[in-house]
Design a protein around this nucleic acid. Structure first.
Lengths: 206, 206
DNA sequence: GTCTGTGACGTACAACGTACGTAGAACGTA
DNA sequence: TACGTTCTACGTACGTTGTACGTCACAGAC
């Protein structure tokens, strides 16, 4: 029996295995060993399938509310939950952020974030701005990461050498930091920015 | 005479007028009143055309180096230069960030950013991390902004009402902040996050 | 004149999303 | 058992996309 759930599952598996470009209705149908048009009995169109992927993936967000700890720990936990999902479905997450499907986040995470900023002591308008800044950072970090991967794919076998070959007079810092610029530890990069953000929020006047 | 420059110009105009989805080789050819395949004498394929768009748009970045002011002002100026470009070519910028074309930024802005963090007194590795965090934020803010626009398009005529109709018991903060959540002032949102970031960087140990 | 590019173009093809019509299976009702 | 209804899987077909390939007109060198 064909089912919307089975279709979305197959689509997710397909995207994770062969990338976003491989996601076509025909490919999904082949994956499930059915005819293409059979899919349309359960999914109105491809955009809806993307929405289904986004919803399914985002549903994996673990929003365990532990009101015993301080707001900073709560905030870190929430953001890292997002990161965990992104690590579990990297290709799908990339698809979600770049296609801005439906509400990019559900409402539950938003509620959770606003609850956290509330316990941190901020008024409503400030809470919304803080949340938006964090969302922007999380989305952007995700984007930058896939950019980085793509860049390293394109670049010659030794990217650091390519950087170092630039004119050191015109690009003194880039050439000097060639090693750091091509090294790539997404997790520590992300954590660095996250702590930066949280400390800045902490320093904000109430 | 058909020219790569004319092709890229036409493509940019087309994207800004009718959106990314309207960018097809055939549409560009029609815009220039030439046959489709003539384009391929100057552009190897569509991906290269996207790269051309990205390069052209990003070249509009004004990187006026004014070493008289403190690093915070320099940083603000650099980031706002990016914002200015994004405001001038919103649709193209959206295309660039979502398709992560080529080097997402050129090398010159990177050099400039590292120079700024250098004068701020950070060592190399820290400078790279700081720069990456800022890039992530700038990219994400851009993304979040177009998401927001799309969301407001989809939502019913009065989005605030839709938010407010949610169950106030399950979503107390969202319903209470319905007005702030649907209000949308990209510039002030962006500036808020930017100042947050800069103050956090300022507070960082050297 | 002839030769050699070079760039504009037409045709053609594979892959895509999907509108539409059909056929068969499952089921309640008589 | 017979019949009508509903649901779902499917085949065919169309328009649109990127682009490989071959052709053809024209410009400049000799």
């Amino acid at each position: 029996m064909l089912t919307r759930k089975r279709i979305v599952d197959a689509a997710i598996a397909l995207v994770e295995r062969h990338g976003e470009a491989a996601l076509s209705m025909r490919a999904v149908a082949a994956e499930l060993d059915v005819a293409v048009m059979s899919l349309y009995n359960h999914v109105p169109n491809k955009a809806a399938l993307l929405d289904g992927i986004a919803y399914r993936v985002m549903s994996g967000l673990e929003l365990d509310d532990d009101p015993g700890v301080d707001w900073k720990t709560q905030a870190r936990t929430l953001i890292r939950a997002f990161r965990r999902v992104a690590r579990e479905y990297p290709a799908c997450m990339n698809l979600i952020v770049t296609h801005s499907v439906e509400l990019p986040f559900g409402i539950k995470p938003v509620e959770r974030a606003l609850a956290i900023t509330d316990t941190a002591g901020f008024d409503g308008p400030t809470s919304v701005k803080v949340m938006r800044a964090i969302i922007a950072y999380a989305l952007g970090a995700q984007l930058r990461e896939t950019d980085m991967v793509k860049m390293l794919d394109y670049l010659p076998p030794d990217p650091a050498a390519a950087f170092a070959e630039l004119d050191p007079v015109k690009f003194p810092h880039v050439t000097a930091l060639a090693k750091e610029l091509t090294a790539h530890d997404p997790e520590s990069d992300f954590e660095f920015g996250l702590e930066l953000f949280i400390s800045a929020i902490d320093a904000l006047p109430r």
